[in-house]
């Protein structure tokens, strides 16, 4: 499924032939027209681009110095056998990886570490990460396209305003995609409800 096709699927009802929505991170707000059939768009938040790695150094202005992935990876040969953080002999070794048994290079492009790679070998920009996820996670992608998976804000009624949806990696760490545990912080304080007896 291409990014455009994916996004078309969840664009406004009645306008499925609309072209793919904005590639920009910013939400595009078409002017509201007198024609009530004119709809606002559903846009998906996008990552800003390839990640950069902190070097631990600071420049003269005191800003942290970061490096592109390719800075190191162009000098090292790719290893298709690496599947866990412990497989790595240097760097990244502290990261936790828990995403099945796929190898690093199933998703990362060994020819260009500042980009991703689809299963058929085609290169994919980091900003289009959802296309990558959707290759394997079809049911989730399908549910996502119908609003049944993934958070959103804005308007339910696209004739009145736009909607913005989270992308996969807003909620899921791609290296350990299970949704993290949370500590509930808010609880109505009911009179006489015995909170010490949490287990029935």
């Amino acid at each position: 499924m291409s990014g455009a096709a994916m996004q078309r699927a969840h664009s406004a009802p009645g306008s499925t032939t609309e072209p793919a929505p904005a590639r920009d991170r910013e939400v595009e707000l078409p002017a509201r027209s007198a024609d009530s059939r004119e709809k606002f768009t559903v846009s998906i938040r996008r990552p800003s681009g390839p990640p950069r790695v902190a070097t631990g150094l600071t420049d003269l202005q005191g800003n942290a110095v970061t490096a592109a992935c390719s800075t190191c990876h162009t000098t090292r040969p790719p290893d298709h056998e690496n599947r866990r953080a412990t497989d790595l002999d240097d760097f990244h070794s502290g990261m936790s990886f828990s995403h099945g048994t796929v190898s690093c290079l199933a998703c990362h492009d060994e020819r260009n570490y500042d980009a991703l790679k689809l299963a058929d070998g085609r290169r994919l920009a980091f900003t289009d990460v959802m296309t990558l996820c959707g290759q394997c996670h079809g049911p989730q992608m399908n549910a996502y396209n119908h609003g049944a998976h993934g958070g959103m804000t804005g308007y339910w009624d696209l004739s009145r305003g736009p909607r913005v949806k989270n992308n996969c990696i807003d909620c899921h760490d791609p290296h350990a995609p299970q949704f993290p545990k949370m500590q509930p912080t808010f609880k109505p304080r009911d009179r006489f409800l015995d909170h010490t007896r949490t287990e029935h």
């Binding site: 009802p13 009645g14 119908h146 609003g147 049944a148 998976h149 993934g150 958070g151 959103m152 804000t153 804005g154 308007y155 339910w156 009624d157 004739s159 009145r160 305003g161 909607r163 989270n166 909620c171 949704f179 949370m182």
Partner: peptide, 30 residues
């Protein structure tokens, strides 16, 4: 036309809201 506050706040994206009379709405898909 806006979404309810509880839906927007949900960090897991578990909530879904829409028009049951619209056959193409997300809620009807569900």
């Amino acid at each position: 036309g806006r979404l309810p506050a509880c839906l927007e706040a949900c960090p897991t994206g578990a909530r879904l809201f829409g028009d049951l009379n619209d056959p193409d709405s997300d809620i009807n898909w569900v």
